[in-house]
Design a protein around this nucleic acid. Structure first.
Lengths: 205, 205
DNA sequence: CCCACAGTTCGACCACTGGTCTAAACGCTA
DNA sequence: TAGCGTTTAGACCAGTGGTCGAACTGTGGG
């Protein structure tokens, strides 16, 4: 997080700094973003930047966390559910909201995905929080018998997230060359795939 | 791939160059590896290096492809199968071999995973080949009725790979603090999870 | 009034990165 | 030995993230 002084800065300047960093990341992606260019963009000196942020990672982390916050807000909450059917309905709606946000903000989503892909880097904490969010949702499902309990919760969360990321990658690569109705149909079916992965196993016949 | 001249180099020197690059990548990971250090390690001049490799990406790609080759060889083939039961047996053995290799070569595996995580970078071609391999194995399963056919093959491959990567991440984070028998049990159960994801859906009761 | 002092800003500078380019050394054939 | 393509060496380049001392600001006290 930024040094405490940063929060004593007038909001306009704060927005300016973070905005410059965000613009840079949108244009060049997380990896390609240049600290020096951010400084140039913000019209501030290097010394000043380092006066407010510990280092490059600090700045980027701050921006990325803000994006994650926006995403979370857009995805919304599951809300209270008391039956498995309600749960799956709520989850479907949530996934729908997520999908809408992702397609509306493809660049932001790209940054989000780089958080997920990142391993051992500065975004680890953020990644952990994301998976905690998923775990929480799954936990809710377990409480109403919608989600299987025969696996460690964290493992389920990782597996489910990984699966959805994989599916997302496939869609990103193919949805351009597909009729819209196929996209809809298959993406809905993929939700079914997720559900099948997470539901308690049916008894053997 | 390296410039053609590289293959006219005497094998010892070839091994030296690739070895230096590999050592550097093992020590610092794919992202952290420095081209200049590789040159230093190899005891060769920069001009010579650029004489044999187009650029940094070229060198790293070559090394990574070699590692992928080794991994593929270690995983082995599924072999001919004619029933679903045989298929799942063969796949289990294959996953077992993969797991063994990964735990024996954790650093190499780490590089392999960074290939998977990578998006839009120099490793894209390699990533595509990996998924093609997975697709081939799934295709074999479809032919004997072991793998569902109600999804595009590529999507299944991405989803399955993503799920396993997620699971792997969980194991990497938890297996240190777990009794070995739990690791075995859960990892075997995870294989069941994969199978459940990929098998044709059972008819509704 | 002005001086001291903390808080803030500036940009020159540093070590390092991947990449380019000239020039010399080498091996070979004529 | 002269000439020619191949190979090697390393100075050099722009760009990177990061450091640092000097300069500027505003404020409170003697």
């Amino acid at each position: 997080m930024p040094l405490p002084r940063f929060y004593k800065l007038d909001p306009e300047q704060r927005e300016n700094l973070l905005g410059a960093a965000r613009a840079e990341m949108l244009e060049h992606g997380y990896e390609g973003a240049s600290f020096n260019r951010v400084i140039e963009r913000a019209g501030i000196s290097k010394g000043a930047m380092y006066y407010y942020f510990a280092d490059k990672a600090d700045l980027y982390r701050t921006v990325t966390e803000a994006i994650a916050e926006e995403a979370m807000a857009a995805f919304g909450e599951l809300g209270p559910v008391s039956t498995a059917a309600e749960y799956w309905g709520g989850l479907e709606a949530m996934m729908q909201r997520a999908l809408t946000w992702i397609t509306a903000q493809p660049q932001l989503a790209e940054i989000g995905k780089s958080v997920y892909a990142n391993q051992g880097g500065v975004l680890d904490a953020l990644r952990a929080r994301l998976l905690e969010g998923v775990s929480d949702v799954l936990k809710q499902g377990q409480d109403v018998g919608a989600i299987r309990t025969d696996f460690p919760l964290g493992l389920l969360a990782e597996a489910a997230t990984g699966m959805m990321m994989g599916a997302d990658r496939w869609f990103a690569e193919h949805f351009a060359e597909m009729p819209a109705e196929d996209v809809m149909r298959i993406s809905y079916a993929t939700y079914g795939l997720l559900r099948q992965l997470l539901e308690p196993p049916r008894a053997e016949p």
